[in-house]
Design a protein around this nucleic acid. Structure first.
Length: 257
DNA sequence: AAGGCGGGGCT
DNA sequence: AGCCCAGCCTT
């Protein structure tokens, strides 16, 4: 069986448009969009979004609401709000040494950007990478253990290629459901060769009828119009959006900030 | 450590 | 009718 490097060369997602650039802004946008959102949906949204906000200065000069509107139905609109906040920071101060100083950028996203932009070789463990590492190890891993396992995986790949190869393997082969172990380049040395016993994921409450759905409906109204009479909207959901900086209310009318 | 936060595609 | 998704932030 060929190694991970050969598998990645043949089966990696080399078609994804944000992989064709090393522009940190373009990659930051893609990573934030990809937080808890499938690749296929980001693929639909990223090009037009980048055309509207090609650099941090352009986004910083726009009101947050323009970014929230452009975010569309990607979900978790607070990501759009934080991305605008990040753009303001970058436009004013430049890129911080520690990317986690940017709103909406945590340990994973910071590592993913460093790997992809500068070809650094730092662990970036998302749900896909974690699944690969834990199944290979045969047990659940703490964050520190996962970082150590990451460094032992995929050699001689390093940096950007190591990150993307493990990521793609997790998405296409070492899948959450129905893993395709027969075609896995890491089969040799894998402890489980299948789902890990006790591999559980926090289950989310049903969306139908939820407060999240109510918030989403108000967001959709605000995206579609310049302003909406407060009386037409779900008051609790609107208050929650205002608290998150996703809506403003002036003189009885609600709008994007 | 746990809970909140969209929305859609796939089974 | 669930399951799962390139997480992050607050409590």
């Amino acid at each position: 069986m060929a190694g991970l490097a050969d598998w990645y060369a043949a089966h990696g997602r080399h078609d994804l448009p944000w992989r064709a650039t090393r522009d940190p802004w373009a990659i930051l946008v893609s990573e934030v969009m990809l937080q808890q959102t499938q690749v296929a949906r980001v693929l639909d949204a990223w090009p037009a979004f980048m055309a509207e906000f090609p650099d941090p200065g352009t986004m910083a000069a726009a009101p947050p609401g323009a970014v929230i509107a452009a975010w569309g139905r990607l979900g978790y609109p607070r990501r759009a709000r934080r991305l605008h906040d990040a753009a303001v920071v970058i436009a004013r101060d430049g890129w911080p040494e520690d990317l986690r100083a940017l709103p909406g950028v945590g340990a994973y996203t910071a590592g993913a950007i460093r790997d992809q932009v500068h070809d650094e070789d730092v662990p970036a463990v998302d749900v896909n990478v974690r699944r690969v590492l834990e199944r290979r190890a045969g047990r659940l891993l703490t964050p520190k253990e996962a970082d150590a396992a990451y460094r032992r995986t995929g050699r001689p790949l390093r940096g950007r290629d190591r990150f993307l190869a493990i990521m793609d393997l997790g998405a296409a082969v070492c899948r959450a459901r129905d893993p395709r172990c027969d075609g896995c380049p890491l089969r040799r040395g894998c402890a489980t060769r299948g789902p890990l016993t006790g591999e559980v994921r926090a289950r989310q409450a049903p969306f139908e009828g939820s407060f999240r759905q109510r918030r989403g409906r108000v967001m959709a109204r605000l995206r579609a119009a310049d302003a909406v009479a407060v009386g037409e909207l779900d008051a609790e959901a609107l208050a929650s959006l205002v608290a998150d900086g996703l809506a403003v209310v002036t003189r009885g009318r609600a709008a994007l900030p």
